[in-house]
Each structure stands twice: as C-alpha cells, then as structure tokens.
Design a protein around this nucleic acid. Structure first.
Lengths: 342, 342
DNA sequence: TAACTTTATGACAGCGCTGGTCATTTTGTA
DNA sequence: TACAAAATGACCAGCGCTGTCATAAAGTTA
C-alpha cells in the first residue's frame, strides 16, 4: 500500500542506498541509473517520507511561507505555486500567517524556523522588504528567498525573485499613450510597498519618453484599497481639467476609481479610460472589465521555491547568479479606449 | 540545544516510555509520575518532534484541508482557524488545493491521505457535499469533519459542523420586513451549493410567517458571482412592479445587484434595499457598504478541527453528539433602509 | 500471609530514511 | 592486458518517538 524507498529500489533493481543517492543528487551515480530510479519513482508514485527524512537527516525538508497580506487572492496563488514546487521536490510547506507589524515579529520568525527546523523561507511583501527580517535570518544561517519589486538583478542579492513592476507600468502607460491619451493620472498604492514606487517610476518614465511632463496634480497618493480609489478618482474628476485616463496602482484601486466615475455618470471607457494592475479577480468583477497587467503569481512562487531548493541542496551550488525576473503582461480589456476627441 | 524525550526522562527519573505515555494521555500512569514528567517537560521547554511521532506512530499528527473554492477570502479564513487549532494541539496542517470536478478526485484524496498519513481531513463545500468523497474516506477508515449548511444536528452524522444558513436568512429577511418591505426579491447562488437552497428556504419561511406569498418572479436563479448579480437585478428592475428590496445570496451577487441598480440611477438604499451574505471584504468594498450576514469562518474552522482531534484522540470518545451549529449574524450597514413610501 | 489480580513501568524493536565505512563490481584509460 | 577511477551495494548506527510485551509494584482477597 505505502511505497517506501525499498519498493523503489526493488523496482529499479538497485539498492536503497542508490535510490537515496539519486534523491539527494549525490555525485557518482551514472545517468542511466538515475533515469532508472526516477522512472521507478514515477511508476510507483513514490513520495519520500518527509518525516523520515527530517528525522534522519541533518538537513531539513520543509520550507516555510510567512505572510501578512490582506489580498487573499495573492496569498492563495502564492501558496499554490509553492505547493507545486514542494511536491515536485519532496518538500513540505509550512504556512504561517502572522502580523508583520507585531513588535515581536523577528523573534517569532526565528522561533518558527528553529522549532520547525525549516530548510528555508519564502518571503513576500511586506516581509521581503523588511531588512530586520533578512538580517535575523542571515544571522542564524537560514536560507530565504525574497520576492520583491525590481528590474535589475543585483549581484550581491542572489536570493531574490524580481517582479519588474517598472517595465510593466511602462508598458501599460504606453498602451494609454498609444490610445492618444496624454492627460493621464496615477493613483498610488501604499508608500511602504516598493511596488507602488516602481509602478509610478515606470509610469513617469513612459511619459517622459514621449516628452510629456507628468502633471503633479495627477499623481495622487493613496493606498491599495477600493476606498482609496474612490477618493482619489473623485478628487481627480473634480479638477478643472480632468485626466482622460487613470492608471490605478492595482485592481482594487481601479475598481474604486471606476465606481467613482460611474457615480458621476462618466462613461467608461468612452469618456475616461481606467487601467488596473495585478489581474486579480477584481478586475473581472467590474463593469466594464479592467485593462490590467497580469502578474503570474503562481509561477513566481514556484520560481522562488526552486531557487530556495537550489540554495539548500548541496549539489547545485552553481554560483551563477540566477535571479529570475518576471514582467507582468499587459492585458487589454474593455476599460480603455481611444481618447475622446473633444 | 535540542531537548529530546531522553532528556525529559532523565530529568524526571523515569523511562522514556513513561514520558511518552504522559504525552499521549495513556492510562495507567500514576498522578505523581504525570506531575513529575510534566514538570520536567516544562523546565526543559520540551517540544515533541512531529517528524518522529509521525514516523513511529500508527496515528498521525497532521490533518489535511482540501479545498477548491474560488473565494480566496473564505479559504484564507478557514486556514487561519485550522492553523490556530493545530498549533494548540501540536498538529501539523497540510493544505491541498485541488479541482473538485476532476475525474480522479476521489483517488487523489485517497492518495493524499494515505501518502501523507493524515489523521483526518476537514472538508468544506464543495467537498463536504460530495457523497463519493465521504464514502471513500469512510471506506478507508479515515476521520473527517464536514462543514455544511444545515440547521438541525442529525444523530447519524456526528462529524459535521453546521452553518445555519436557514436561520440566518430568516433573520435577514426579517430585518427587511421590519423595515416595511414586502416586495422582496431573492437572487440565488449556485444550485449545487446547498447553502443557496438553505438561504432561500429561510427567506421563504420568513415571508410565509408574515403571511406574504413569495412572488415567483422575485426568485431568480443564478450563481455565486458578480455577473449573476448584475444579470438578476437587471431582470428584476425591469419588472413592471419592481421589488423594493433584494436579498442576494452572497456579497458578490449583492455587489452585482448594487452595480446594476446604480447603472439605472436607482438610489441605494432610498429607492431599493440590498442585502448580501457572508461579510466578505466585498461587502465593505461597495458603496454603500452592504448589510449582510457575518459568517465567522475562522471560528467555524477551529471548531471543525477540534472536533476532528476529538475523534482522532483515543481518550476522548465521548459519544455525545457534539455537533456545533453556527448561525451567521445580521450585520446592518448602509444598503438597507425603511421602504420608500410611494 | 500466600496467592492472585490489577496497575504501573521498563526493555526493546522498528518506523523510513540518511550518513558513514568498506567491499565489490563495472567502466574507462594507458 | 593491467590498472586506476567511477559506480554501486552491503551493512550498521541512529534520528526521536511509539507499540508490544514482559516485568515489577501495588492492591485485593481468603
């Protein structure tokens, strides 16, 4: 019923020791043998027992994902990606929702790692942007991978997966520019999230490239929430010279903006184009559906986990700076249109 | 650094087996010995190794949560509740997102349980409403707890946590009735989800009690989505004699209804009252915020986990039918008001 | 108080795997 | 063909705990 290392060994016609060698990428195993073993593992649906491995080995076979993100869709997507990667590599995933702002958070993370003997940690915002967490983890010698907003791999930070918000925002803005818009406003997300800053920078860069000066009144601070979108848009639409397009820093803000516009009987997209960011379910639950940037969160998470395994695994110290960069893709739906000729 | 059962045994002056007995509440241990051991455990900050226990024991110290629910907020809330309960009882939680409609789903669940040696499973809709899953689990003798919609504990189903949608819907409808509404429409969720049926039944019961016949045209089939709400409300508001209030089967539908109403320049709540169900973040991300029923998902999840532990743990076979029932509570916000006098 | 039952405790094997040490076989190379 | 190097296996201990069974302590009865 339950398939163990012995079953695999028997099936592949090798000793359990060799199966173990294959599983752990140990040197001195012929490729042919590796293949045989892998095939046997597949045929038997073998999954090594994490319990036994954790117990027997000095290494650990579980990774942790700590999060504190109000966006449930994001978290679920991340989990799914991590889970997939873990399954493939025979790791366990420990999820740990917590409060990033709690005073004892650093100690809490350390306790978690030590008590659960974690091989490593995957960090998303806000944790990935908290230097004290990174320091604490480094000091106790625990591997971790951070998913952060950024465009250029930095050689000293090899443990990052980058999401290129800058370039994505640049592209979105270009989409708007190509539709003839020049009066484009930007609704910011939370200051603390670097993603908001990156997106704003991409936005500005696109404008600048076309020789357009960003109107300071068109850049509205805010936070990643529906309410913020309502407020920001209301403010913008009260301006004597309104923008013809609004770039909202995420879909929730965009939904809020959409809402505000409709309240004022402004037709979307005929009189005003609105774009979001993230391709969250929100962006489909508005009318019209939002043009947005698709962030492949599940894939990003997988990539982060793989990176972590690579660090953790003894064999694979390939020293090459593999720092994946993901660029969210423009997804044109019905909330954007050619600028209205006045 | 790491304290094991041997350290505790040495400290308490007993054998490791006795320590094990104390940990597992096994009978035949003198109270004096129990105290000694407990004290030693405390002094040493002893934490048993889940890995070793899982490996050595026929019982397991992990439970699983399988889900396939498009509502990420629901899933996250559930996870949090389960996690809390697990932490308190020294269990691990294994999360397993999957596709309920996949043809091999039963086998997949069985594989999961057998391979990960789970002590039990927590099932939420749709899994909790799939008889084939329950049968398969029973046949391989695995404990599980189902969270289902229902109001009356049934003596033959001891492994259920009930969410009393009927009563909650009854109360919501009463709220509307007390505001003077009599022309109330109902937007259904998916047929397959029993929650939709239960809520509709509660709705009808409340009307009947007031001597009101539910207008068949006011009961609109649909699904748990924004789009469905838009469609249903649009249809209702085109009727010659419109309803003065709409009971949407969940917040998403309600948000859709709200949206549709606003498109038609109908003032909420002055001209039309709308209620949702669930108290999801959606209900706060509309304007006006929705009157809804609050479902304490985290608490429900905890309760389900506790029930599972009770079943699993050898000592506690209290045979009493402890079948928790949760009644979502009415949460009045700004989307409902006294019926307009015509 | 002996004989016996019940209760409390310990000795020991083993869960599935890793890590080490050697011995042995297979392969590649001079 | 001889020899070094690479590939594999056999075997053992042990990770921290539980299950089984044997044994010791305590309680009961006549």
């Amino acid at each position: 019923m339950k398939v163990t290392i012995h079953d695999v060994a028997a099936r592949a016609g090798v000793s359990i020791k060799t199966v173990s060698r294959v599983m752990n990428n140990e040197p001195s195993v012929k490729q042919a043998t590796i293949d045989k073993v892998n095939q046997a593992m597949q045929e038997l649906h073998y999954q090594p027992s994490a319990a036994a491995r954790n117990l027997a080995s000095t290494k650990s076979y579980s990774i942790g994902y700590i999060y504190d993100n109000p966006n449930a869709y994001y978290v679920i997507d991340m989990q799914r990606g991590l889970l997939d990667a873990c399954r493939r590599h025979g790791y366990e995933l420990l999820i740990h929702p917590t409060n990033a702002k709690s005073p004892g958070i650093v100690q809490e993370v350390i306790d978690l790692v030590q008590h659960s003997r974690l091989a490593g940690l995957v960090l998303t915002p806000p944790f990935s942007e908290m230097p004290e967490i990174a320091e604490a983890l480094s000091s106790i010698n625990v591997d971790f991978v951070r998913i952060i907003s950024g465009s250029t791999p930095s050689p000293k930070q090899t443990n990052c997966v980058l999401v290129d918000d800058f370039t994505a925002a640049f592209k979105i803005t270009n989409h708007l520019l190509e539709l003839g818009h020049s009066q484009i406003a930007f609704l910011c997300g939370d200051d603390e999230h670097s993603s908001s800053g990156e997106r704003l920078a991409g936005f500005k860069a696109a404008l600048t490239k076309r020789g357009i000066n960003a109107n300071p009144k068109f850049i509205v601070p805010g936070s990643y929430s529906f309410e913020s979108g309502v407020k920001g848009a209301t403010q913008l639409l009260a301006l004597p010279n309104k923008p013809t397009a609004i770039f909202a820093c995420n879909d929730e803000i965009a939904a809020g903006a959409l809402f505000s516009a409709r309240l004022q009987h402004i037709e979307i997209p005929q009189q005003l184009s609105i774009v979001g960011f993230e391709n969250s379910p929100f962006s489909r639950q508005t009318w019209p559906p939002l043009t947005t940037a698709h962030q492949p969160n599940s894939t990003i998470a997988q990539s982060a986990a793989e990176l972590l395994f690579k660090h953790t695994r003894p064999g694979n110290h390939s020293q090459t700076e593999d720092q994946p960069v993901f660029i969210p893709e423009l997804l044109v739906r019905e909330s954007t249109a050619v600028v209205a000729s006045e």
